[in-house]
């Protein structure tokens, strides 16, 4: 099984290749210019595993939420590969990818994922490790909200890992101060973390045909 995964939803730009049980990854944090790097990164991970684009079985892309331009870069790459090679495509939430990266870094099975959405809002969700699926699964739906309105957990018994750029915002930290055991605001979604999710989604038949590739912007009001 060969899966090519990539994400450009945030400052991080990354590509990873799963080649049966071997993983190669390119990961860089760059403010912009993701489009300039992404295909060279794809080439690099393919070369490292002596693979060619034609060998890939499926692709997984970071579908959002995140930077609008970044989301379009990832979904345009996904469309290009999917049309060219007639591949099924797996759309992965950037918040799920972020939660998975946070889990792999901290082993904390409960993650509050938040990405700064600018304009005093955050992209926000809860994720929990699922032992059957062996990856993080959403507890609530990904949403766009003001930090002071982000939904609190039902009980304060559980302690969460707070991951993502949204946790640089003081209002959000303050609101969740009683249920956070650990904060990693510099954690980003990354392609290698998406591979586990992609494998599980592929097994579940949760993939798209090329005409269904889209970005999950969450913010749809773009005119005044």
């Amino acid at each position: 099984m060969k899966i090519l995964a990539f994400d450009t939803a945030t400052e991080a730009c990354s590509v990873a290749l799963l080649n049966d049980d071997k993983i190669s990854e390119c990961y860089e944090e760059i403010p912009r210019g993701h489009a300039q790097h992404i295909l060279a990164m794809c080439q690099h991970v393919l070369d490292e595993q002596n693979c060619q684009a034609q060998d890939i079985d499926t692709i997984a892309y970071g579908a959002g939420p995140g930077s609008f331009t970044g989301l379009r870069i990832a979904s345009s790459v996904a469309q290009g590969f999917a049309v060219a090679l007639n591949l099924p495509v797996i759309a992965i939430s950037s918040l799920q990818a972020l939660a998975q990266a946070a889990y792999e870094q901290t082993q904390n099975a409960s993650v509050l994922a938040a990405i700064d959405a600018r304009m005093e809002e955050v992209y926000f969700s809860y994720y929990e490790f699922n032992t059957d699926k062996q990856c993080m699964q959403e507890v609530i739906v990904d949403q766009l909200c003001a930090p002071e309105l982000a939904p609190l957990p039902d009980s304060e018994a559980k302690q969460y890992c707070a991951a993502g750029s949204g946790w640089h915002i003081a209002t959000l930290q303050q609101r969740f101060r009683n249920c956070i055991s650990q904060t990693i605001p510099d954690c980003y979604p990354r392609a290698s973390s998406m591979l586990k999710i992609a494998e599980q989604k592929y097994t579940d038949g949760d993939y798209l045909t090329v005409d269904k590739i889209h970005s999950m912007y969450l913010r749809d009001k773009v005119t005044t």
Partner: peptide, 19 residues
């Protein structure tokens, strides 16, 4: 710029995948 980027990224990725 954003409009150009959609066409360019798609075109480049399509060409890359088909060599």
């Amino acid at each position: 710029i954003g409009a150009l980027l959609v066409g360019a990224t798609f075109a480049r990725s399509f060409a890359f995948a088909r060599d």
